[in-house]
Design a protein around this nucleic acid. Structure first.
Lengths: 177, 177
DNA sequence: CAGTACTTTCATTTTAAATTGAAAATATGT
DNA sequence: ACATATTTTCAATTTAAAATGAAAGTACTG
């Protein structure tokens, strides 16, 4: 089946994608993933894998893997066209939704493992290390875990609640006093 | 000059350092840097480069570079012993200070470049791209930048203000309603 | 102004992460 | 069930990041 050309392409978009790719690198995101996300953000209509591949000169494997990752993150939706196996992809354009997706991933990757230290710490205090240095480390860890729990609370809210909460929180929090 | 052994070392600390290193990886921090930070966090007294090197089996180059990075971040303080060129290093143990350091770095690395998109966006709208797709991208970008500014506000405060503000903010924000 | 103790740099090597491309698997229409 | 369009997987390659180690630089001491 001949694929209708759905890509809109111009210099502004090309530049945007480049910038988005660089930004992605700073955020610890694979270049291909960031580039695809940038491309889809700049497109109003869903694209098929082949369009993504050829527009960004990526291999099929990479395009597929990164597209999958974007779908897993919730930043991109797969769209099934009726009467064909073909899958198309659109990006979520709402900034708040995007942020929630990213927050979800970061919490999983960065915060949850940190909070697991709590369990480890307890399992350790069972072992009889009550030397002064061990106790000092214990105290430091307590402080870290308290902070981590606080940040975690913010993330939990950010992820599970609606946009209104976030806005209210920012307004309340950022107002001096 | 013979160096007095200042390291306190046991299984708990070794495990902690290992966990901290893994955590570091999830946070996009070089393993050696995370390991050194873990080691210094677990020590009450300042260590010299050679102790760090041998305890963690690192090369001198790596120990030096990562120690420097930790000092640059503000997570570790260099201590000059009088009457010798020798430099020792201690970790900041206060969790809030640590968080502020990390927030500062992340803002610089992840947020500031995002905010620079604003300038780019404006320089682009000067060029006459008023096609429908270009306008759509423009709108999406606006949303993203608005979110980015909001998050940036939080970070600015977190970095420049004192601990009390942060605590208050969390308490106010996290209380339901 | 040596001599030495420590620090800094950097070309090379190592390691980990991302990408490729082609083969295998799966779904869909006839 | 067959043929074909599309997706998925994965061993091999490429690329980028970090670590090494030895040489060069710098400050302190007598």
């Amino acid at each position: 089946m001949k694929t209708k050309q759905t890509i809109v392409w111009d210099t502004v978009q090309e530049e945007f994608i480049q910038k988005w790719r660089e930004l992605g690198t700073a955020w610890g995101i694979p270049p291909a993933m960031a580039a695809i996300h940038g491309l889809l953000l700049s497109q109003q209509h869903p694209l098929i894998t082949d369009e993504v591949m050829s527009t960004l000169s990526l291999s099929r494997g990479s395009a597929h893997t990164q597209l999958q990752a974007l779908v897993d993150w919730g930043l991109v939706y797969p769209v099934r066209t009726l009467g064909t196996r073909q899958r198309r992809y659109v990006a979520e354009k709402d900034a708040w939704q995007m942020m929630a997706c990213i927050a979800r991933q970061r919490k999983k990757r960065e915060l949850d493992p940190l909070l697991e230290l709590e369990g480890w710490k307890e399992s350790q205090s069972a072992g009889l290390s009550d030397s002064a240095p061990a106790q000092a480390l214990d105290k430091t860890l307590d402080g870290i875990l308290t902070q981590a729990r606080a940040v975690n609370g913010v993330f939990d809210r950010l992820i599970s609640e609606d946009e209104r909460w976030w806005e209210q929180w920012l307004i309340r929090g950022l107002r001096r006093n």
